[in-house]
Write a protein that binds this DNA or RNA. Structure first.
Lengths: 302, 302
DNA sequence: TTGCTCCTCACGTCACGTGAGGTGGC
DNA sequence: TTGCTCCTCACGTCACGTGAGGTGGC
């Protein structure tokens, strides 16, 4: 008969005994003969071919329940090609994702080693939902003026909301409509989020104020800051650094940096007060996946 | 109090409710308050910072039980750097492995589409254990002579083993000591594997025969062929193609292609007989991992 | 009789997702 | 009273690895 015990077959094929037992249980590879008294499994040596086929397909990344029909049913060439193509795409995605992850790890490491006092910026990627806001926009000359101006601008919105008996309990936020990290003449907008899309709305009073929907954003880099509001701009700068360092790009449109004031009952923009702020920076989601993958690979330090 | 229900907090942070419940159970993120009557969980909004920290660390690839001490214990900077470096290496390995996997998938696809009659070569990577053999080596002028010569050479070994009452039941194999895929003057060696390392051995009779240990091999590409022996060289050629196509390189030393005859009681080298053969081609394991990764990335079709 | 090889459960893995079945607050 | 939100188990996931406890063959 020339049958091999499971241990012998296992060594020959260099797979574990428990794997062979598992494949037996799954019906992937039944032993040629099982002793009815002892339950001992015996394999014929040419079953190595089938086992190899299983291992080779598994090695391509197929799950075992996909391997089964590939071996047994003689699946058509077209369908196999389809499965391989799907597998190819999955792997590309996987590699790309891991490459980005690697960039992030390296970025952290770099951050850790280069700075005397390492800061930990917990950046989380999210989507942004569509938001209805009442905003109030204005050019603010210097950073010192932000405090005063924005309180005034929030006041205008609140007054208008109260006057028309509208819900003013929504989140406060600030949008910085600037292209760069500049230090004067901030094109800023403060806004209050409406809890529901407006049905009918009274017209807005004058110039700076507007009512609009902020479109949904496919991807944003976000981080939560807790501390003195004066320093929030440093964190915003760190966030931008993170984005650049990790190979993301900023979109041309809707790129305003947003600050969401998370404290409730809190009056935003008292620069010396403690605050809880979520910073949101819209970034491009990667339609360009593989390209940027290669770029990031090429620019690795050696 | 300004506490959020789990659903609200979940939407704000864009993580699922079940994730929050899971983090609670793990002790990663306890709600600020739990109603003792209803069991309702309530979160304070600034717990978003902690949640973000968890997500950011998880996103770097850390398992949750590594995340815990990172957040709670204020692990030292040195230790964090160590963990990140380990993480970096893991990711590099992962990416490299997936890249190779991708190469294999593409190779299969290519094979599938380019050939009119697609062949499926189930290649499995293995290690090779050290083997003690009695070999018999000789230059064989043409392929037609292999049959006759090797039978003669096996005969010599067997006679010698019988004469000295040694175990001749070990596997038969052939080694092709050629650098290239050539078609004449094969430098071939046939051998019988000894079941155990020899203690004391009588001297070998004459020229071609030798007794030696084949060193262990770190990596071989192997495949099992079942069919007419005449065609085994085609499979050997396919195996070589596979190796080249998947970016592996051949070692300078110990590079002989091996045929292991798996049928027992079978007389090897009757070209017209059916046989079961494992082909083994030693290849380099990748100390050069990242380099070859970049090469394979660069040479991708676009 | 002692090793050795083999056997069958049963449980663990990792980070949740998915019901089933039930309750509290507007 | 009806939805809605929330709750707690319990089970599944994927491909095995790892015991525990036991048996057959030399």
């Amino acid at each position: 008969m020339d049958l091999l015990q499971i241990g012998t077959f296992s060594k020959l094929a260099q797979v574990s005994v428990s794997t062979l037992r598992f494949y037996d249980a799954q019906g992937l590879l039944k032993p040629e003969y099982i002793d009815p008294m002892t339950g001992y499994r015996y394999y014929r040596i040419n079953q190595l071919a089938r086992l190899n086929r299983i291992l080779a397909l598994k090695d391509l990344g197929f799950a075992l329940d996909r391997v089964q029909p590939l071996i047994d049913d003689e699946i058509g060439v077209d369908q196999l090609a389809e499965m391989l193509t799907a597998q190819e795409q999955d792997l590309e995605k996987q590699i790309f994702a891991d490459q980005q992850r690697l960039d992030r790890v390296r970025s952290r490491l770099h951050q850790l080693q280069s700075q005397s006092q390492p800061t930990f910026l917990d950046v989380v990627l999210k989507q942004g939902a569509e938001l209805w806001i009442v905003g109030n926009r204005m050019i603010v000359p210097t950073a010192h003026d932000i405090d005063f101006f924005s309180r005034h601008m929030f006041g205008e919105i609140e007054q208008w909301l109260y006057k028309h008996k509208l819900d003013a309990s929504g989140a406060r936020m600030t949008l910085y409509h600037t292209d760069d990290y500049i230090e004067r003449d901030y094109d800023m907008e403060v806004a209050i989020v409406l809890p529901y899309p407006p049905a009918v709305m009274p017209p807005l009073p004058h110039g700076g104020m507007r009512l609009e929907a902020l479109p949904a954003l496919p991807l944003m880099a976000t981080t939560v800051y807790e501390g003195v509001l004066r320093d929030v701009n440093k964190v915003a700068y760190d966030l931008l650094q993170w984005v650049v360092h990790n190979g993301y790009t900023l979109p041309q449109k809707n790129m305003a940096l947003r600050e969401i004031f998370l404290n409730d009952r809190y009056t935003p923009h008292r620069m010396d007060a403690l605050g809880l702020v979520e910073l949101q920076l819209p970034i491009n989601s990667n339609a360009h996946s593989l390209v940027s993958h290669f770029e990031s690979v090429d620019s690795l330090p050696t």
